[in-house]
Write a protein that binds this DNA or RNA. Sequence first.
DNA 1: GTGTTTGTTATCAA
DNA 2: CTTGATAACAAACA
Length: 293
Amino acid sequence: MPELPEVETVRRDLKKYLVGASFQSIKIIDFKNGAPGATFLAKTLKGQEIKDLRRRGKLLILDLSNQNKHLLFHLKMTGQLIYQHSNKLLAGGHSLSEDSLSAAVGGKLPNKYTRAIFRFNHDGTLYFNDLRKFGYIKLVGSPELKEILRNNYGPEPMDREFSPVYLAKILKQRRAPIKAVILNQQLIAGLGNIYADEALFAAKIRPDRLAESLKNGEVLALQGAIVNIIKKAIKARGTTFRNYVDAQGKRGGFAHYLQVYQRQGQLCFLCAKPVMKIKVAGRGTHYCPHCQK
DNA sequence: GTGTTTGTTATCAA
DNA sequence: CTTGATAACAAACA
């Protein structure tokens, strides 16, 4: 599941390959959600240079040389953006091992899940794969982008604005489960199911506690835990549980550090009691009943 | 066939 | 207006 650390990893990778590159051709293969007309997209993008790549929450933003235009990518659950240069997947200068390739759904590119192919003037190709077709590609003008960012995204965990005071403020008098609150992108941008569960474990807070019930010390612990987990996960290049791979088709390394996510029935690393799984906010939720109060 | 997987939005209720 | 709960979407897998 691409959450903030996964999208950030892809952004950093693609930035190395794509800044300064110009679109040469665009092929839209099979889209259900929000893909602009293939002809229109191809016509608008052709010849446009990529000036910069940004990220807000889980949204990837490509700034184009037409200062008014931005190309947005959302990977949702199973989206992948994989970059290939001269028929070789780039992996820090080396070609990919079999093991890395196996993580790219279907192996070779393009594959049956490839929904769009972007070719660039410098002989590079960007593949947008999406098994479940939740993801989208969207071309927007600057005013529309500003509106999208303003309306849908709270502070990033790494921002100064995401302080214990801010967290306390948004939790106050909220009767939703704490997990639902930290998953809400309008309140905190970037957390998804994996890092929400992991942050709550690190802060020793049960995911089904009502937000308003958190004590000051718990709010402080949770704020710190969220920042920590996100930083660590970016360093590890994200978590590959199912479909996520980076821009080179390689798996993320954070699965190794998971304490509760998908560990139901296994023993807690801290207290050696079994990790439980329940449903909170409509999502599979993993926690340790002994360590989390 | 059944249940489960999750990021986001739509819809409805209070 | 805000808040919260739930279903819906999509495709694959056990």
